[in-house]
């Protein structure tokens, strides 16, 4: 394969490295956790990974469109505290359904604020979403100053134990999102999205509604953040205004490990989901490999850096030859 073919090949298969990495990480995980493919273990793992998977999928859409959103974690927090305070441990199911619908709207509204400032006010995405992350985090803290609250037991056990057709619930949610993404990619909107992320001014000159597309990516990310917030709330079944804090940067890392370039235009939702699973498995490996507690942060970060560096190292050697 010559250099040009190789470039085309990696461009057409942005998930290549992430799939390879997924296989390696899975094998290592299997080594330290032999019952990994047991049904219960898969379900246990997937329900812990699901919030980040959902968040990373939304982040991937924004990054694909050439932006970045560092407020998604704060949106997760808002959703979490709204559910925990408004429904409560003793709340009735109707109220829970109502509030779940409401938080989806909240997530989209938060995304719309981001989108408005980035797409229509033409502010730089990273600093804009940094500013709004303060807004949202402050709002979450305002709603629930001290950790507490909760959701009805029935919902957390539904999230924990539902295995339709013997497969974890998370699989079905992931499949649904992949289907939706596959459909979006077939539409004109999907092509517009790649065009805007690839080169916004060229897209503009070919009559692509650039601002509207950019705006929509942030709304999509807000919606996915709200879904992620619902999943997190069902997972931990309590409220805390800092729930989403550490998820933001992980979601960006997941997107990049998943083969989406931060400059936009290349990549997709599936890769980001793989990236999120990889990050979850790395954490798994560390907790099962009996690594000294003090070393865990370092090992986790080092594996991530190596994973990020791997495609670059391979390309470096290919260029030398």
């Amino acid at each position: 394969m010559n250099k040009h073919q190789w470039q085309t090949f990696t461009l057409h298969n942005p998930y290549l490295f992430s799939l390879l990495l997924l296989v390696i990480i899975t094998l290592v995980n299997l080594f330290v956790q032999p019952d990994m493919f047991h049904r219960d273990t898969i379900n246990n793992n997937m329900r812990v990974f699901l919030p980040l998977i959902l968040l990373a999928a939304g982040e991937a859409v924004v990054i694909l469109g050439g932006g970045i959103d560092i407020s998604v974690g704060s949106i997760v927090s808002i959703v979490n505290v709204i559910l925990a305070t408004q429904v409560g441990l003793q709340g009735n199911p109707q109220k829970m359904y109502l509030m779940m619908g409401f938080v989806l709207l909240v997530g989209m509204a938060a995304g719309a604020i981001n989108g408005f400032f980035v797409a229509y006010m033409r502010l730089q995405p990273i600093i804009t979403t940094y500013a709004t992350s303060f807004l949202y985090a402050g709002l979450a803290l305002f709603i629930l100053p001290n950790p507490g609250g909760g959701i009805p037991q029935s919902f957390s056990s539904f999230y924990r134990d539902t295995t339709p057709l013997g497969l974890p619930l998370a699989f079905f949610i992931i499949a649904l999102i992949l289907l939706a993404w596959g459909f979006v990619q077939q539409t004109r909107y999907g092509r517009y999205l790649s065009a805007v992320g690839g080169k916004a001014d060229a897209a503009y000159e070919t009559a692509v509604p650039v601002s509207a597309i950019q705006f929509s990516t942030y709304v999509a990310a807000g919606l996915m953040a709200a879904l992620s917030g619902i999943a997190v709330t069902m997972l931990v079944s309590s409220g805390n205004s800092t729930t989403g804090d550490q998820l933001t940067l992980s979601s960006i890392t997941a997107v990049v490990i998943g083969g989406t370039t931060l400059s936009g235009g290349v990549g997709g939702v599936a890769g980001a989901m793989i990236g999120a699973v990889i990050l979850g498995l790395i954490k798994n490996i560390i907790s099962f490999a009996n690594i000294d507690t003090w070393w865990q942060t370092f090992v986790n970060a080092a594996i991530i850096v190596v994973a990020l560096a791997a495609p670059g190292v391979i390309n470096l050697f290919r260029r030398k030859r």
């Binding site: 400032f117 500013a131 807004l135």
Partner: peptide
């Protein structure tokens, strides 16, 4: 309170 401070900071930055 911390919450209001965070919101004001975010809004001002924006």
């Amino acid at each position: 309170p911390d919450s209001v401070r965070s919101m004001v900071l975010g809004a001002t930055l924006l």
